[in-house]
Computed example of a mutant assay.
Amino acid sequence: MSESLLTLLDWRRRLSDLYAEVRRLSRDDPQAAHAHWQAVRNELFARHPQTPLTAQARADFRALPVWPYDPAYSFSAAVQTDLPPEQFVVQTSAGHDMPLVRVGRVALQNEHHDLGSLDVYWTQVYGGGLFVPFRDAGSGHSSYGGGRYLLDTVKSADLGSLPGGQLVLDFNFAYHPSCFYDPQWSCPLAPPQNHLSAEVRAGERLAARLD
């Protein structure tokens, strides 16, 4: 038990270091940051004791499938906080309740795409953290049907903010929750208001449909 908790501590430290380096590299070379993100995550999934992969999947693991980096899926947005705060209880993949508080909304618009908007949540667990899950038109086909995570600062998945306070929202770093790999994990699923009508062909994906 104690050894498992210490390896979990190491996993979280490594993720924290990874995202700190991603934020540093992204200032000058987002594609290099993305390549580093892939390389470190592949190493952690392949070798770390806290990998979410099952033993069978780990034996066959080569790399996490991701779309090539596409700058058109990188956004920055101020959090619109003029919305009434709402408390939600969302279901996890294991059927548990997860309390969330909506703290605002971000508009996903740049010169390439207008994807609509996503609500931004604060997780009501110890310490709290910013959480932005989403589903898109490809969920269940080109990515996990339960959705992916864009930000989850409780787990150090934090792409940072710009000097003006806008959140960095780069879908190239979107990833599957642990329950996608092993149902023993209980992961909050994206609520209905965080469903995007377009397919987001960036970030982590299913191994099939390599078009």
Results as ranks from 00 to 15, higher is better:
residue 173 F to I: 00
residue 49 P to S: 00
residue 32 A to D: 00
residue 65 P to C: 02
residue 3 E to S: 11
residue 56 Q to C: 10
residue 60 D to L: 13
residue 98 M to F: 09
residue 170 D to I: 02
residue 128 G to M: 06
residue 14 R to Y: 03
residue 132 V to H: 07
residue 17 D to A: 12
residue 62 R to G: 13
residue 141 H to V: 14
residue 34 H to Q: 02
residue 184 Q to W: 13
residue 172 N to E: 00
residue 30 P to M: 00
residue 72 A to K: 05
residue 76 S to V: 14
residue 135 R to V: 05
residue 6 L to D: 05
residue 27 R to S: 05
residue 123 T to L: 15
residue 1 M to V: 11
residue 112 H to M: 03
residue 197 S to V: 15
residue 203 G to K: 06
residue 44 L to H: 08
residue 66 V to Y: 13
residue 54 T to A: 10
residue 211 D to I: 10
residue 150 L to W: 11
residue 54 T to C: 10
residue 55 A to K: 11
residue 143 S to N: 14
residue 89 V to M: 09
residue 37 W to E: 01
residue 66 V to M: 04
residue 27 R to C: 05
residue 147 G to P: 12
residue 199 E to M: 14
residue 60 D to A: 15
residue 141 H to F: 14
residue 108 L to T: 07
residue 50 Q to E: 02
residue 146 G to E: 06
residue 140 G to S: 05
residue 159 L to H: 13
residue 180 F to R: 11
residue 150 L to Y: 13
residue 56 Q to V: 15
residue 141 H to P: 04
residue 38 Q to K: 13
residue 53 L to V: 07
residue 144 Y to W: 15
residue 131 F to Y: 15
residue 33 A to W: 01
residue 174 A to T: 04
residue 90 V to I: 09
residue 10 D to K: 09
residue 112 H to Q: 09
residue 117 S to Q: 10
residue 97 D to M: 01
residue 184 Q to L: 14
residue 195 H to T: 14
residue 70 D to A: 04
residue 9 L to I: 01
residue 88 F to Y: 15
residue 95 G to V: 07
residue 5 L to T: 04
residue 155 K to E: 06
residue 34 H to A: 02
residue 17 D to Y: 04
residue 82 D to V: 11
residue 95 G to D: 03
residue 118 L to V: 11
residue 192 P to D: 06
residue 24 R to D: 02
residue 71 P to E: 00
residue 62 R to Q: 11
residue 142 S to F: 04
residue 131 F to D: 03
residue 47 R to P: 10
residue 133 P to L: 00
residue 23 R to F: 04
residue 13 R to W: 01
residue 63 A to L: 09
residue 164 G to A: 12
residue 135 R to G: 07
residue 206 L to P: 02
residue 93 S to F: 13
residue 200 V to L: 10
residue 76 S to E: 15
residue 7 T to R: 01
residue 83 L to S: 10
residue 46 A to N: 03
residue 163 P to Q: 08
residue 132 V to E: 01
residue 115 L to C: 10
residue 107 A to S: 12
residue 43 E to V: 07
residue 84 P to E: 10
residue 71 P to N: 01
residue 41 R to W: 09
residue 9 L to F: 08
residue 41 R to T: 12
residue 27 R to L: 12
residue 129 G to N: 05
residue 109 Q to W: 13
residue 103 V to K: 08
residue 78 A to N: 12
